[in-house]
Amino acid sequence: MEGLKVSDANLVVCVHPSKGHRVSEAVLRELSSHLFQFSEIFDGVLLAYDVNIVEKNAKILPGIHPYFGVRLKAKLLLFSPEPNMLLEARVVKLTPESIHVIVLGFASAVIIDEDIREEFDYRTKNGKEVYCSKVHRRHVIKVGTMIRFLVKSLDKEILHICGSLKPSNTGSIHWLDKDFEEISLIDRSGTKRERENEMKMQEHAVVGGKEISLGNGQIKKSKKRRLIEES
């Protein structure tokens, strides 16, 4: 999925003097407070981190209430969606006017009817709301389906995304991946048949209006017959 990236960062975490005897705990707590929230510092949503404290001796920062500045190196997993990126999400609600999804379990997104391609038709099937493709009957979107959609716009502060199912490479991930595998199998089988046909053509030739085999045994016999005729 697009929008995920790993970044290396050099950070300084401010620790209250009362936490001076538990610096590592204070650092992890401070970083944890930024999880699943958009941060302008990181330019994304912090999903996970791996920390290595560089200096064990923290420096006192100037101020009325002095804090300790702890330097550390961190590897950060960030979620930074942008327009025109392809994201994956789980469907949580369907209506005739919209599809509601959750991205990575915390960010909400909605796809309204004008951004759903005409191929999909909303209907009730076995008492459940679904979006069925009129082109491919097995391409169905329902609650619980993992879909791939295009980011149309987003509000970073509240982590709300407006998506689109207009492109042909969007929809149910299960169907899209399965369809791609079937196309690959067809391509591979077609290539195999072409190679077999070429081998058959190489093994046979037409001489004097008659088809003869060009196998090793036939080549030897043909050479022997030609030598007899020439003598």
Rank of each mutant, 00 (worst) to 15 (best):
K56P: 03
E55P: 05
Y67W: 11
L104K: 09
K59G: 13
R29A: 11
S108M: 14
A26G: 05
Y67S: 04
E82G: 09
M85V: 04
E114N: 15
A89N: 11
S24T: 00
P66V: 00
I102A: 08
L94Y: 07
A89Y: 02
E40H: 02
N84P: 07
G44L: 02
N84D: 15
R29C: 06
V92T: 09
P81A: 08
V27F: 03
V101Y: 11
E40K: 11
P81V: 07
L35T: 04
L31Y: 02
I111A: 10
Y122S: 04
P66H: 13
E118Y: 12
L86A: 03
T124M: 10
P81K: 07
A89E: 12
L72M: 05
K93I: 06
V103G: 12
L87W: 10
L104S: 06
F68V: 02
I53Y: 02
A26Q: 05
A58V: 04
L87K: 09
P62G: 01
G105N: 11
V51W: 08
T95R: 13
S39H: 08
V110S: 13
E82L: 02
L78G: 00
D113A: 14
T124Y: 12
K59Q: 14
M85H: 12
S24M: 03
F38L: 00
E25N: 06
V91N: 09
F79C: 00
D113P: 10
Y67P: 01
S32V: 01
V101K: 05
Y122W: 03
K56I: 04
E97V: 07
V51K: 08
V101R: 00
V91H: 13
L86M: 11
D50K: 15
S39R: 13
S32W: 05
S32T: 05
P66M: 02
I112L: 12
V54A: 03
S33H: 09
Q37S: 14
A107V: 02
L47A: 05
